[in-house]
Every structure is written in C-alpha cells, then in structure tokens.
Design a protein around this nucleic acid. Sequence first.
DNA 1: CCTTTTAGTTGGAACGTTCCAATTTCGTCA
DNA 2: TGACGAAATTGGAACGTTCCAACTAAAAGG
Lengths: 347, 347
Amino acid sequence: MAKERVTVVDIARAAGVSKSTVSLVLQGSPLVNEATRAKVNAAIRELGYVYNRGAANLRQAKSKIIGIVVNDLTNSFFAELAVGVDAVVQSAGFVQFLANTGEKIERQREVIASMREHGVSGLIISPARGTEAADLAPLVASGIPVVLVVRDIAGAGVSSLTSDNRAGALAAVRHLIERGHRRIAFLGGFADTAVFEARVRGYRDALREAGLDASDELVIGSAPSRAGGVTAIEQAMMLEDRPTAALCFNDAVAFGVCDGLRARRLDPGQDFAVIGFDDVIEAKTAVPALTTVSVDPQGMGERAAELLLKQINAGRAEAQAIVSPVRLVVRQSCGAAIERRLKEISS
Amino acid sequence: MAKERVTVVDIARAAGVSKSTVSLVLQGSPLVNEATRAKVNAAIRELGYVYNRGAANLRQAKSKIIGIVVNDLTNSFFAELAVGVDAVVQSAGFVQFLANTGEKIERQREVIASMREHGVSGLIISPARGTEAADLAPLVASGIPVVLVVRDIAGAGVSSLTSDNRAGALAAVRHLIERGHRRIAFLGGFADTAVFEARVRGYRDALREAGLDASDELVIGSAPSRAGGVTAIEQAMMLEDRPTAALCFNDAVAFGVCDGLRARRLDPGQDFAVIGFDDVIEAKTAVPALTTVSVDPQGMGERAAELLLKQINAGRAEAQAIVSPVRLVVRQSCGAAIERRLKEISS
DNA sequence: CCTTTTAGTTGGAACGTTCCAATTTCGTCA
DNA sequence: TGACGAAATTGGAACGTTCCAACTAAAAGG
C-alpha cells in the first residue's frame, strides 16, 4: 500500500464520473444528484482517498491555517492561551500552526517567515521580549491579519488583545492596604517589558493614593518564574525595613515567593501576604490557595482567535486595541484565612 | 500593497532570467552563476517575494511539515515534550503542526485526518486515553512514519518511545523502604492506562521483594492532576492503617498530595514522605523540593523527533519500541532533610 | 413539435512551483 | 579555426485541485 497517491481523477474513474463532479461532491455542493454523490462517496471510502489541501490552497489562493507563535510554551499561561486559540480555531474549520520562540527574536523572525511561506491566513502572536514595530513591519505590510496578544507593541498598526494590567495591580494593592498592610513590595518580572511597566504603575498608583511609601527598593525584579520568585523574596527579606506583603509579577513568581517564605519558616498567608497575577489553574488548588488577579488565559486565547477570524472574514479591518478587564480573586494567600479566624474568635 | 502575489515568474522577469533559474537560486543550487544569483536575490528582496511552499510541496509530493498531537497541552509535561520536539524539528528545517486533543478520541481522529490532508511527512502522537490499535490502522496503512510517545499502543505496528515506568517506580519504592517506611501508598492516576499499570507494577514488585504489604487499599486512583492529588491523599488518610509514604502517579499529583498534607497540618517530607514522577521544572524549586523519577520530557520530545526524522529520511524503517531509562532524583520531599538533620545531631 | 428552462455534468485552463531534457554560451585544446 | 566538453540557462510538462463556461438530458411551456 501507500504506493501511489489516490487523486480525484482516480475517484472519478472508479465512480464513472468526471473529476469536476468529484470536486463538487468534496465541497458538498447541492448541484450534484443524490445517487452520484453516493457513488462518489463510496469510491472515496473504497480507495482510501485523502484530500490534498495543499493543491486546493494553491488553486484558491487561501488556506485554512492560522499560525500562533508564543514566546514561552513551557509557561503554562501560554500553553493555556494556545489551548484556547486551538479550541475556537478548530471549530471554525481551521488548523493551528504552533511555534515556540523561547523569547528569541531571531527564532521569531524565522517562524513567522516560515508561516508566511506556508500561506497562513492569519497570525496570533505573543511577541518575544524586545520585539519592535519594525520587526513586524513586513508582515503587516503583506496584509495578513495579525492579532497581538498579552504584549502590545506600540506603532505596529495591528490589533491587540491585552489585559488591564494596571487596573489589576491597583485592585490587588488596594486590597492589601485595606487589610492593613503598610509596607508592600512588588516582586518579580523583567523590568523592560510593557506588562511589567503597567503592573508596577498600578502598584505605585495604589500606594500613592493611600499616601504610602513607594520607594524603589520595594520593587524587585527577577525572572518571571518560580525560581525567580524565590530569589526575589530572599532579596526582599534582606531589606532594613521588611515588607509584610507583596504583589507578584505573576503566579509562577508568587509560588516561588511562597516557597521562599516556607524555606525561612514563614507561613505564606499567615506571616506574609502574597498576591499573584494570571490565575493559572494551580492557583486554586495550591496550599494556601493563591489570591491572584484573574486573567483567564484560555479565554484570552479564545477571544484573540475570534478577533482574528473576524478580521480574516472581513478581509480588511481596522486595527483595534482591546484591553480585557481583569478581576481580583481573593483566596487564602493574602491573609483571608487570618481574617476568618479572627471573626471566629470574636463571635 | 498585498495586491497581487509575486511569483517566481515576476522575479524572473525583473531579473531578466527564466523562472527555472530563479527556482535554482531558491534551492541554493551550485549550478548557477554567482552574478545571476546576485541579480535574482536582489529582485527577490526588491519585490518582497515570499516562497510558496504549498506549490512546491504539490510538485515534489513531500512537505517539510511534521505533526505533533498531544493529549493535554495544559499539562506542563506535554508542553515541555512539544518544546523538545519543536527544537529538533525546526533545526532540521521542518515546521511543526501542533494539535491538542484534550483526551478526546473523536478530536484526535479529526486532527490526524486534518494533518494527513495537509500532507505532513511524519507524526508524533501522544495518544488520548483509550486509543486502540484500530484507531491508528488507516494512518499506519498509509505509510506515513509515526512515532508514539509516552503511551504505547499494543499491536499498532509503529515505533514508540516510552519511559521505563516500572523501573522508575521500583527504584522509588526501594528508596522509601531503605528509609524505613513500611506502609507505602500509590496515589493518583487513571487505572486504565498502560502507564499507570507499569508504575503500579514496579511499586508492587518493590514491596513484594521486601516482603511488605501490597494490598489493594493502598493503591488509590484519581485524576492525574494537582486536584486529584488532594483527593487521593485525603482518601489515604481515612485508612485504618495509615501509610507513612507515597509514590505518586506524577508530579502534579505529588504537589496536590503536599497541598493536602499541609491542609491537615502535616509537613510533607517531614511527617510524610512523597515521591513524584516526571521531574517537571517546578519539582526542583518547590518547597520542599520534590523527590521524583526524572523522565526529562523535553529530552523525550527531542529523541522522538530524531527517531521520526530518521524514519522519514530512511523512507521505510522497522518499527522499534524504545524505552528510555529513568532515574530517581532524591530531593527533600521523601525525607532527605530529616536524615540530614539526624546526621547533624549525631555528629 | 420546437423552444425554453432546469438540473446535472463535464473538459480544460489555471494556481506556483520543480524537474527534465534540451539548448546556448564559453573556454580549451588540437 | 573547428570541435569538444563544461558551465549555465531555459521552455514546457507535471503535481492535484477548483473554477468557468459549455454542454447534455429531461422536463416544462407554448
């Protein structure tokens, strides 16, 4: 088997019709007689025909492929994002080309080029760190619909879907302040990203409006990973005037911070309040359950895919920047448990 | 811009050569004169030409696409596996079609069909739960090289790359026994998978060779997730005769078990020994650092991709079942810390 | 009975590339 | 100078599909 490819012509011969008719059947056209359709379908099954989408694309000059490029697939935030995209893209009859850049601009350039060569009809990109508008210029000039997710790039002239990072950070820090914290740190993340900048801005604004200290020593960068969280909290605990709470760049950092606290025999949520950002799946089941700003990566992926599909169908659409709202999910790690216990005692 | 596609003929006209010559340049053939090559390349840049790989594939009847289908991309084990595949596949000049089945057979059927239609030249599959040899029969009959990873399927007649689950479990449980544990549970995982079966077999063999109780009540299944781990340890703690240690189906379960222990005010690694399976990235940085059986998902992805590429290049290769070795990484969660402390005291 | 309509079917050109065999160009040698 | 071989270039067919305009057969209308 697998000797020679079975094509429409073979099917046509077997079914005693022309290749045009077979093509019509393949596309479910109503123009073809019920009886012939049955004959053709029988022949298709019989010969084990496989549709050649490449040939079809060549003729029609459009593919049913959309590309998604993410900067770090090992980060479960992006993995979930990809899953969200996949879900809607698949049910729209498209198929997903996924590539991982690992934050490398060069790799990103390569994979985008490769996707264009394969004729993707749209692209969802979570850009690598340091991507500039110029890097995307040839792509957008080609007229392929592009949606940027998570990280926006100023002046790129394409649609983007980001979350309201400033508002999320603001809400989180306000919450910590309400709980009575006066010295609050911001831990983790690379300082040269727009996301970091926005979250820190929200953090500072909340401190300022409460008239609290927003000195630079309280903002401690690190890799946006669990390991980075450990080092960040260690650094924070070296400070003369130690913080009693922290907003973390993301959930991975927050978990690392909890690890670091435990390593110092401190109980996260009890001795120190920590809030994360993103609300990855593990946040709910962790102990203590992580208070975090919910971003819903899967939902973001879905919305990005919908936006892209809309642009593909519309042919040409205005670039729009959507910032999706975000909400604080209060669980245990910010000290909710303490309060509950205090209430129990007083009642 | 983006009006009309520029093709080789446009380039040919602009450079004053024939389309055949342009094609030769595109493929880096040594047959073409240095001067003409330069002219052609200039025209390519000038007109912003993008290569149409679809058309090329049509002519050559082979693509540079490999497909990878995973059963759960939100599980970081599989995300890392995909990253490993991506790395070697990309550097071999291929591009990766990734699809997520979410453990659904029907979806798996669809994505495999879609990939065949797109003419992938090989497929790496981590099959959904319950996949049978019959499900893959048409695929293997077509002669497309296929490599199964993580989960093997008996009688499928294709190559597979799995890890030595029995040996890993055996080593882990032996280690717990050496540490003095006598009542050891196996927690988490779905009982109807080959992986579960192999790990439990290793677990039982270790108990048996030490003459210990291997009763069924100590094997407690659950979803192979963090949440599943929480419920599994809860169930274990309800037993008349409680275990003092557990081997977990995977790291996610192990983290859940730690969470569950903490919820009961028990200190994992101290009051109860836990060992995971897989060695995901977080295992090292967690507190306590997780003792686990290292499977190196990224490395597995790389090896699977290499195996697949070899088969693609060889044209026709014997199906081989590779089981890759596995090693126990001892960290804190199995009580290593306790021992260290005992040593400190005695010295 | 002829014309018109409708339902169904069909051959051939086209999509953008690669491959093959054929051709041109050019330098070298007798 | 003519012949020869090597180097470089080329036109056309082919890949598997879709689209279009043209065709046939049968039914409907006059």
